[in-house]
Amino acid sequence: MRAPDFWRADGMSPRLLSPLGALYGAVAARRLRRDARRAALPTIVIGGLTAGGDGKTPVAIALAQMLAANGDTPALLTRGYARGAGVSCESFAVDPAIHGVEAAGDEALLLARHALTIVGPDRAASAERARALGATVLILDDGFHSRRLSADLSLLVVDAGYGAGNGRCLPAGPLRAPLEAQFAAADAIVLIGRDAAGLAVTAGCGKPIFQARVNPDRQIAENLKGARVVAFGGIGRPGKFFQTLKETGADIVVARNFPDHHRFSGADIASLAALRERYGARLITTEKDAMRLRGTALPFGVLPIRLVFEQADEPWTTLAEALERARLRVS
Rank of each mutant, 00 (worst) to 15 (best):
R2C: 03
A184R: 14
A127Y: 02
L307G: 01
S18A: 13
A68H: 11
L303D: 00
L224Q: 03
R294T: 14
A270D: 15
V59A: 02
M291I: 06
P174S: 07
L41K: 04
F92L: 07
R263K: 15
P121A: 12
L323N: 00
I189L: 03
R176G: 15
R228W: 14
L298C: 09
D217F: 06
A39N: 04
L199H: 13
S154K: 05
L328F: 12
L319T: 13
L116Y: 02
P121D: 07
L23M: 06
L23S: 14
G239V: 02
G193K: 01
A312Y: 00
N257G: 07
D54K: 00
L17P: 12
G301N: 05
A221S: 15
R113M: 15
A22M: 03
A196H: 06
L76D: 08
I284E: 02
A186L: 05
P4W: 03
L170G: 11
F92P: 13
W316C: 03
V190M: 02
D313M: 03
K225F: 11
G236I: 01
F92R: 14
G226I: 02
G173P: 11
A273H: 13
L328V: 11
T296N: 08
K207L: 05
F6R: 10
L109W: 07
G163Y: 05
H114V: 09
M291P: 02
D106L: 10
D313V: 10
L156V: 05
L77Y: 01
I61D: 01
N70H: 15
L283W: 04
G11M: 15
K246H: 11
E314A: 09
T78M: 08
G234T: 02
L156C: 14
T286I: 11
G52Q: 01
E247S: 10
I305R: 00
A267E: 08
R37D: 12
R8Q: 14
T202Y: 01
Y162G: 02
T78H: 06
K207F: 07
H114Q: 09
